[in-house]
Nucleic acid binder design. Structure first.
Length: 431
RNA sequence: GGAGGGAUCGCAUAGUGGACUAGUGCGCAGUCCUGGAAAGACUGUAUAGGAGUGAUCCUAUCGGGGGUUCGAAUCCCCCUCCCUCCGCCA
């Protein structure tokens, strides 16, 4: 949720966010302002009535018992009036907050304006698409050939958009996890990358395995519950399956006041992510690019407002480091206003080249959300105000496996193991 | 799943209807003392919203929500979480 003060202080930024971000239910800015003014008026009335009631109650306690009757009658009248006023206040407040929750976060000035993903801007390319002297296969064919991926069996057992991984694919997954954890916990590497992007904090990341079930109302505070169609909901238990480790790591400090010396707090979480993929029927139906269940390494950081933006720069630097270490050609994309998430202030994606599709496809995203989530989660820090939050993908295992298989394939269908992962997989070639 | 106990200011604790304007200790900040420090003394130390140039004042917040009352940290109801024990369990 945005800071309500922004309505008055930076109305043009709020209007711009409402206009340019693609959200299902656009808020009428003027209506919101009218409701907020009405709320302030009522609040003043309620407060002066409360002051009067408090004064009368205090008087009652001070006068002798026989003189109390008249004051109590008077206080009873004030109480009745107050009740009515409070009821209208509550109703206006609910209306106002329902609208306010629908207002997307404001947008950083560097974000390109655009209507949808076609207007995202490539800000950097690394490597160039590999030229094969044979016809490149896609991950489905390669996975089947090498016995690594079986989506046919999983369809029988679990339905479409699920998969079995076997053998060396599993070893690749555990290698990736180990590689990411080791990198993010290495103080020297954190310091090096932080310095490169001008981030003054060298705190290493803490590994986390978070729960995959959570209360739906907490997910709502993260502004990740909607559209609820995309969530697996367990109504009987009032629980929801997470769509990302972000969902359970973001609320880690809910309701806390963090000491400034504890910031930044940096976490690298590993968990399974669950997505119903409602509304993407017919899109990417083959293979493991878009599945209901996948494992993901996710970064989550809590900082002061001053260092929020350079924190995202650090996360993006780590993402680049990871794909560069894998030596996979990729591009960094500044997501435009019409394609960015509702809570985002700035969103940057990484797209890896996938030779099987001959396209760059999204493998990483990073979201800087300022205090948008922290406000409803009530995560503050001592010097005052809400912390700023960042989340970012370290690796979405399924998608990076696709990139590895397709980029490292050889004419005979075998796969060269990326150098950085060889010590974990225990071999140079998967055949 | 069952039985009992608890949640109070940054932390720890006191507080069974009006003197709570939430006490005390610790921590933190400032001043004094000191050659300097420790110890000690004194003072101050929550957040949010609102009014005022300002000192200051008003309102809300004692896990969350609702209720009783002129008045609730305190009484009643519901919920959440934590602790102890029993049951089940990898």
């Amino acid at each position: 949720m945005i800071d309500i003060k922004l309505l008055k202080e930076k109305p043009e930024l709020v209007k711009k966010a409402i206009q340019e971000k693609k959200v299902a239910d656009k808020v009428n800015f003027e209506e919101l302002v009218i409701l907020d003014n009405k709320y302030s008026e009522l609040l003043q009335k309620v407060e002066s009535h409360r002051a009067l009631r408090n004064q009368l109650s205090s008087d009652i306690s001070k006068v002798p018992a026989e003189n109390r009757e008249k004051l109590i009658t008077e206080a009873g009248r004030v109480k009745a009036e107050l009740k009515e006023l409070e009821e209208s206040l509550t109703s206006v407040e609910i209306q106002r907050d329902n609208l306010l929750k629908k207002v997307p976060n404001i947008i950083h000035e560097s974000v390109p304006s655009g209507k949808d993903e076609t207007e995202n801007v490539v800000i950097k390319k690394w490597g160039s698409p590999k030229k094969f002297d044979f016809t490149a296969k896609d991950h489905i064919e390669l996975g089947k050939l090498l016995g690594l991926i079986d989506t046919e069996k999983s369809s029988e057992i679990s339905g479409t958009r699920f998969t079995y991984l076997f053998g060396d694919a599993v070893l690749l997954q555990f290698g990736l996890i180990q590689f990411v954890f080791e990198s993010l916990m290495d103080p020297k590497l954190v310091e090096k990358l932080a310095k490169e992007v001008g981030n003054p904090n060298f705190t290493p990341f803490v590994p986390v395995i978070p729960p995959v079930f959570m209360r739906s109302e907490i997910m709502d505070k993260m502004d990740r519950l909607e559209p609820q169609d995309d969530r697996y909901v367990f109504a009987e238990d009032s629980l929801v399956l997470v769509g990302s480790a972000e969902h359970t790591m973001g609320p880690l400090h809910m309701g806390e006041i963090l000491d400034d010396s504890q910031l930044p707090k940096r976490y690298i979480g590993y968990s399974t992510a669950f997505r119903r993929e409602a509304g993407s029927y017919g899109k990417d139906t083959r293979g493991i690019l878009r599945v209901h269940q996948f494992d993901k390494l996710e970064l989550e950081c809590f900082t002061t407002p001053e260092t929020g933006l350079v924190e995202q720069d650090l996360l993006v630097a780590f993402q680049q480091y990871f794909v560069q270490q894998l030596e996979i050609p990729h591009q960094i994309v500044a997501i435009c206003t019409g394609d960015m998430g509702k809570p985002d202030y700035r969103q940057i994606d990484i797209e890896c080249f996938m030779p099987g599709q001959d396209k760059y496809r999204e493998t990483h995203t990073s979201d800087y959300m300022t205090d948008y989530q922290a406000r409803r989660l009530n995560i503050r820090y001592k010097k005052g105000g809400y912390v700023h939050m960042n989340d970012a993908t370290a690796f979405a295992i399924g998608r990076i496996l696709i990139a590895i298989l397709e980029n490292y394939q050889r004419a005979d269908g075998s796969i060269e193991v990326p150098k950085i992962l060889r010590k974990y997989v225990g071999k140079d070639i998967i055949r």
